[in-house]
Nucleic acid binder design. Structure first.
Length: 888
RNA sequence: GGGCCUAUAGCUCAGUUGGUUAGAGCGUUCGCUUGACAUGCGAGAGGUCACAAGUUCGAGUCUUGUUAGGCCCA
């Protein structure tokens, strides 16, 4: 006997172990089945499960479980990425507790420590994924620093280098002066900050007392100024173009150049140019041949290029001193308050410095071209489609991708420098030495590049590196390209774009996946982004503990409508937990009534109307849920299942089945038992991708000996011939009748316990047959003592003490005797008559409009006419009823 | 400044190609220890579909504009 409520904590761990040990998660390259492949975007190895993960992995798991049940050879490739900066920071922090820095250890020892950390703590997120019920092929789990994946990284690097698509260059990069590494544009967050515009006067060379005024938000960079730019058409400065001014404090002679970058509307219209410390100035400097002077070291302290008194100072300290000095020199014209954007590192949260260094770059423009085309011509589809714009926007303006990082943890760049700085790029040191020997004509000593690669460089290879590339493995052959990439929009640039570029370049132009499903962001119930600092983070594991994994999964699925963020409140999860309880109790009811699956049961062969009706509804529900999942309309799938289970199966079918199950007709009882068990099984199958635990548990418990796991069963797919219109008509009529009776009873305050007779006047033979067939059900559910059919002649007698309602044009007298309140019944009928009248007026207006009748499609006109007729019919009956009441 | 998105019941949201009297969950009101379930059952109230104009026989749905909010990029 099932317990009264479902207790997730007791089953989840056990079932997960059972699944995992059974091997049911595994792909089978040797099978003949068509593949279905999702490459799990590898979470950060330092990460722990947050709500965004819960959503993305729930949706992926739904797709995977559904396709696996649908007979596909399914590969869901799990793994984690090595998260260069994040992981290095974690381990450094740990060392810091013992007052050790990574420099104390040295590179090799430090990396050993990182691996130790990974072995010990790197499994956190994958274990949390198990708690979510995720079903990837765990034995195939990969890590971006694996030997195999590292070999792929080297191969890709060397290939791109030899193709001229990777190069080393001295360019401005985003430099993180705390982490001491370059970071990508995408790891920089622009923050609005209150600051100042300092207006400095630079003396014009040879013109005593003449100045040109420039405004800056970063006074300290003036130490690196090598020019002043004015707009070429700015009349104020025409005579100064080509002249020089003398940079105060430094004393350098710098040129005044004409460049359209200078905005005549802004400040004085003249702008100081620091090519080595500003991205825009870098371009201006290039156009005007200005010198690039780097005035900082990698900690963003002023270096030896600057006058002595500033050397070694932090950039912000230098700022103060320079402003003070300018003021002292009488060259500070004014200070304005302003609000401007300042770049911060998303990991370190310090101000990022545009910094001139040697770095390695990928020529992304070349790789982006085919990757853009693949989306343009539909080989890759974004769902929802509008994200394609975001993708195009970025791809068409793509910048060189800086892939080197000044870290220790990561793939060390396979480049070696000869004694003269000559670069040798090879997959191994031996090859590099050999190439160098050929180059120099003798053995030389090489030193390897100390930089490592951006983590995204290796994760971009994930769709093929995990399958064994560059080896031509059976997996690579079968599982590339994948079916869909599921991710959030914030990762389109990091992941999607780069995976497409790399995939197409190294897999003969073949795309890495056909669909990209972009899901929402999970926010708190007020629509705020969840963040630790706001304290509004909801921990998915806590929700799982409290409400069960299935409740969380169903909640996220039901809320995952396309194109809208998810606002999550615990109360929603509670509601869906109640759904799990409901399902549990339906199964419990079935168990109590001995509804057990019958071998060889064929839903097409059931006889009773009720059975035929629920079989048809089940077929419809299976279709709704399946097509929801297939079209990535997860909310439709969840709501369709919810509606069916609660609104149809529990609220109506089980209630209608009760008279049979409690009755004496053994043959009818046997059929209802069999069909109930069958429907319940279908429900478990239909719901399994969304709610894997409770369904598996009920599957196990609702029959004596299940041969296989639910998760390995075939997903239900039915023929529409199972839908029986006649059965639908009969049951729907019964439902309408019961609904109407309940409605008027409740409105007229008839005590719920009172069982009262009803009379149907002038019912058609068909209606009589249907109502008679469902009499027991109507009696039970509408609390009716007896159902009788009467003619017009009986009306006078039965009207007494009756309230009246009209169902399908037939007046139903609900004989409530003493409970009747004539005045209330009269006004109730008047209200109903009013409503009908209003509707009829509208319909008449529509149908008397000749243009509507002539232009609207025939079937629309026909249905509108039919609706009008029906309303008129009902109105007439209601008016008669009202007249009778009024006469009392 | 450029781009994208959103505005429907008190709240959170569905509403795929225009066509029933616009739906759900939560909340709320009334009533119920009805033999699976009070994590429940039954019945109700609650909407000028942001605003304006247009296209159309017909607009929550399409077009344009306005307002408000959000996100991305500069």
């Amino acid at each position: 006997m099932l317990e009264k409520t479902y207790s997730p904590a007791d089953v989840e761990g056990r079932l997960y172990d059972k699944w995992e040990k059974s091997g049911a998660f595994a792909a089978d390259p040797a099978s003949n089945a068509n593949p279905y492949v999702i490459m799990m975007p590898p979470p950060n190895v330092t990460g722990s499960l947050h709500m965004g993960h819960a959503l993305t992995f729930t949706l992926q798991d739904i797709l995977v479980r559904y396709n696996r049940m649908s007979g596909k050879d399914t590969l869901w490739q799990p793994g984690t990425d090595h998260a260069g900066i994040a992981t290095q920071m974690v381990v450094e922090r740990q060392l810091g507790e013992q007052n050790i820095t990574r420099h104390d250890l040295g590179r090799e020892k430090f990396i050993e420590k990182v691996w130790e950390w990974k072995e010990k703590s790197g499994g956190t997120i994958t274990n949390q994924l198990r708690r979510l019920g995720a079903s990837p092929d765990w034995p195939r789990e990969r890590f971006t620093m694996d030997d195999g994946l590292s070999a792929a990284v080297r191969k890709v690097f060397v290939t791109l280098y030899k193709q001229g698509l990777i190069y080393r260059d001295k360019r401005l990069v985003n430099w993180d002066p705390k982490l001491l590494t370059a970071i990508s544009d995408l790891e920089v967050v622009q923050k609005e900050v209150k600051g100042h515009y300092w207006h400095f006067k630079y003396p014009i060379e040879g013109k005593e007392g003449q100045f040109i005024t420039v405004a800056t938000t970063r006074p300290e960079t003036m130490l690196g100024d090598t020019g002043v730019a004015v707009h070429p058409e700015d009349e104020r400065y025409q005579n100064l173009i080509g002249q020089y001014c003398i940079l105060p404090i430094v004393g350098r002679r710098i040129k005044i150049v004409a460049d359209e970058y200078a905005d005549p509307e802004k400040g004085s219209g003249a702008v100081k140019i620091t090519p080595a410390h500003d991205f825009n100035d870098f371009e201006v400097g290039k156009r005007n041949d200005l010198e690039k002077i780097n005035i900082m070291d990698d900690h963003a302290r002023i270096n030896d290029e600057a006058p002595e008194e500033y050397r070694g100072l932090d950039r912000f300290k230098a700022r103060e001193l320079i402003v003070a000095k300018m003021e002292e020199l009488g060259l500070l014209e004014k200070i304005e308050d302003t609000v401007h954007m300042v770049p911060y590192g998303d990991r370190s949260n310090v101000v990022i410095e545009p910094y001139l260094t040697d770095q390695w770059f990928v020529n992304a423009e070349v790789l982006a071209k085919p990757a853009t085309e693949a989306v343009e011509d539909g080989r890759i589809k974004f769902v929802p489609k509008n994200w394609e714009n975001t993708y195009f926007e970025w791809m068409r303006n793509i910048q060189p991708w800086c892939i080197s990082r000044q870290l220790w943890w990561g793939h060390r760049i396979p480049a070696w420098f000869g004694p003269d700085g000559e670069i040798f790029v090879e997959e191994t040191e031996e090859e590099a030495l050999a190439t160098a020997k050929a180059h120099f004509g003798k053995d030389v000593e090489l030193t390897q590049e100390t930089d490592v690669l951006d983590t995204w460089f290796s994760s971009a290879l994930w769709p093929f590196s995990t399958l064994g590339w560059p080896d031509k493995t059976p997996e690579l052959n079968k599982y590339y390209p994948g079916d869909v990439l599921v991710t959030g929009f914030d990762i389109i640039f990091f992941w999607v774009a780069r995976m497409i570029m790399m995939g197409m370049h190294f897999m003969d132009g073949e795309v890495p996946f056909k669909d990209v499903y972009i899901h929402a962001l999970v926010r708190d119930e007020h629509g705020q982004k969840m963040s630790k600092s706001k304290g509004n983070v909801i921990d998915p594991l806590e929700l799982i503990d409290e409400y069960g994994c299935d409740a969380l999964r169903l909640t996220l699925t039901a809320l995952a409508a396309q194109g809208r963020d998810i606002k999550l409140a615990a109360s929603r999860v509670e509601g869906y937990r109640n759904f799990a309880t409901k399902l549990w109790n339906a199964a419990r009811f079935a168990e109590m009534n001995e509804c057990k699956p019958v071998d060889g049961f064929n839903p097409a062969n059931v006889n009773s109307t009720l059975a035929r009706w629920i079989v048809g509804k089940t077929a419809e529900a299976a279709k709704t849920v399946a097509s929801g999942i297939e079209s990535y309309r997860f909310n439709d799938a969840a709501n369709g299942a919810y509606q069916f289970v609660w609104g149809t199966f529990c609220d109506w079918y089980l209630e209608l089945a009760k008279p049979v199950l409690m009755g004496q007709d053994e043959e009818a009882k046997a059929e209802i038992r069999a069909v109930t068990a069958w429907v319940l099984d279908q429900i478990l199958l239909i719901l399994h991708p969304i709610m894997p635990y409770i369904t598996e548990e009920l599957w196990e418990k609702s029959a004596d000996n299940r041969a296989t796991l639910l998760m390995s069963q075939a997903y239900p797919k039915f023929n529409d011939t199972l839908i029986d219109r006649a059965a639908e008509d009969e049951i729907d009529l019964a439902i309408r009748l019961i609904g109407n009776i309940r409605g008027v009873r409740s409105e007229m305050n008839v005590p719920p316990a009172a069982e009262v007779p009803i009379y149907l006047v002038d019912a058609s033979d068909a209606m009589k047959a249907a109502v008679s067939a469902q009499e027991a059900q109507v009696k039970r559910l509408a609390r009716v003592a007896a159902v009788e059919f009467k003619g017009q002649g009986d009306v006078a007698t039965i009207a007494k003490g009756a309230i009246q309602t009209v169902v399908d044009g037939v007046t139903v007298f609900v004989s409530v005797a003493d409970f009747i309140d004539v005045a209330a019944e009269k006004s109730r009928l008047e209200k109903e008559i009013d409503g009908k009248n209003k509707y009829i007026k509208g319909q008449e207006g529509k149908l008397s409009n000749e243009i509507f009748v002539s232009r609207a499609p025939e079937h629309i006109v026909a249905t509108e006419k039919a609706k009008l007729e029906e309303a008129r019919d009902t109105l007439a009956k209601l008016q008669e009823a009202h007249a009778r009441i009024a006469a009392m």
